[in-house]
């Protein structure tokens, strides 16, 4: 469970400050899949970074109840952030190696993840030898490798081609259902938000704030049938309308 109360963030700029996130009270149940949509600059990244502890709040609090987990969150950054001097394999196993996981155990996990994200054959490549989409897939595998209870994903699929994106969406749903992780995913695609989420947060800019939340009742497991479901189309239409209003 993630609870924010009065969570707010402003950045000091020359000659003033900018309110990136107006006080936000929200509760995300353990095991939810929360999609976050909103125009750029509305504080989506700031929200994720506050939850991850990468920014200090200007006010209010974030509480994560992840028990004794040493690393409560995994983060998929918007631009992959692979270490350029490590191979794909070593990047993916980096969280495991630095947590002292045994080598053979690490190899097994990394092997499965490389298959999962479709990077078989590129294990020994360096990040600069990969396309943007492949880099993001490696970053997703890395974030999954040490199995954090909360997974924060900041536009993870923006550089991935459409077909791969759909495959990864379905994989992500499977992982979510199997592991019961709490996932927060920022996306520009309202279709993706509706398809994946058990909840959708719509944010709006100036100042960044939570405009609305939807609970998504579409049945699981989701698949091609979901995309034909009138309820899905209804939600997508509403989200699109919300996005227009926030412009």
């Amino acid at each position: 469970m993630i609870t924010t109360s009065g969570l707010t963030k402003s950045f000091d700029l020359e000659g003033g400050s900018i309110l990136a996130l107006a006080p936000l009270d929200h509760r995300i149940e353990k095991g939810s899949f929360v999609s976050i949509v909103g125009p750029s600059g509305c504080g989506k990244s700031t929200f994720l970074r506050l939850i991850a502890g990468l920014e200090d709040a200007s006010g209010g609090t974030v509480k994560l109840d992840t028990g004794s987990a040493k690393r409560p969150v995994g983060f998929v950054f918007q631009d992959a952030v692979l270490l350029p001097w490590k191979t794909v394999r070593d990047n993916i196993r980096f969280p495991l190696d630095t947590a002292g996981v045994r080598r053979d155990e690490g190899n097994r996990i990394v092997g499965e993840l490389i298959d999962l994200v479709g990077l078989t054959g590129f294990e020994d490549a360096l990040p600069k030898q990969l396309s943007g989409g492949m880099r993001q897939r490696a970053a997703i595998a890395r974030a999954l490798s040490d199995d954090p209870p909360i997974l924060l994903m900041d536009e993870p699929f923006s550089a991935v081609d459409l077909l791969t994106r759909e495959t990864l969406n379905d994989e992500l749903l499977r992982i979510w259902q199997r592991t019961g992780k709490t996932i927060l995913l920022v996306t520009h695609s309202v279709e993706e938000a509706a398809y994946l989420g058990s909840e959708v947060m719509v944010m709006s800019p100036r100042p960044g704030r939570l405009k609305k939340t939807y609970t998504v009742d579409l049945p699981h497991p989701r698949g091609e049938a979901t995309k034909l479901d009138p309820a899905y189309h209804q939600l997508v239409a509403e989200l699109r309308q919300d996005m227009r209003e926030t412009e």
Partner: peptide
């Protein structure tokens, strides 16, 4: 800076 963010998330 992003590498340092990664280090922080991984609590290195």
């Amino acid at each position: 800076k992003s590498y340092l963010d990664l280090a922080r998330v991984l609590k290195l």
